[in-house]
């Protein structure tokens, strides 16, 4: 990779990488350190990148996500990693595309507000259903049922 390629990649993706790191770590200093680490890996692994397997965006996201997982393993080994970041399975590159995010948006818009709320709070904000129940002033049982209904509707919309 020549310096101007790296410069272009940094200019294009540093905002996204920092945005993700801040959302995960909530600490700017750590996020900046990890951001530097991500781009060092991008530079080091560039020769291995295969555009037929994944877009550049998905590839850099995968590196970023794995960097966060490694960071948590080193700094908080006693902490049980949440399922979202602990998985060692390869990220499904085919699914992680801008297009699929658009499909998810369209599917969510079809849901009634309460079901939309449960999905966003559970999967974006990663809140447990017990906390969502308090936020929505509903019983845990009611939220659990609505959660299942939301998943069924999304499965139908997205063909999952």
């Amino acid at each position: 990779m020549n310096p101007s390629d790296l410069e272009n990649i940094y200019a294009t993706y540093s905002g996204k990488v920092m945005g993700y790191l801040m959302a995960r770590l909530q600490c700017r200093a750590d996020a900046e350190d990890l951001c530097a680490s991500v781009f060092e890996k991008v530079l080091r692994k560039w020769e291995e990148y295969d555009e037929e397997k994944a877009s550049v965006s998905t590839w850099i996201f995968t590196i970023t996500r794995n960097t966060v997982i490694d960071y948590y393993r080193k700094t908080k080994p006693a902490l049980e990693l949440d399922e979202n970041i602990a998985s060692e399975e390869a990220v499904d590159d085919a699914m992680l595309q801008e297009e699929t995010l658009g499909e998810l948006a369209a599917a969510l818009k079809k849901l009634p507000n309460d079901l939309q709320t449960i999905v966003v709070l559970a999967y974006y904000d990663q809140k447990p259903l017990t906390e969502i129940a308090k936020i929505m002033h509903l019983s845990y049982g009611a939220v659990k049922l609505r959660h299942q209904k939301a998943l069924a509707m999304l499965r139908e919309s997205m063909g999952a």
């Binding site: 996201f61 499904d92 998810l104």
Partner: peptide, 11 residues
Amino acid sequence: LRELFDFQKFE
């Protein structure tokens, strides 16, 4: 959903 929302924080 977990994967997509996680990706959303990036994309």
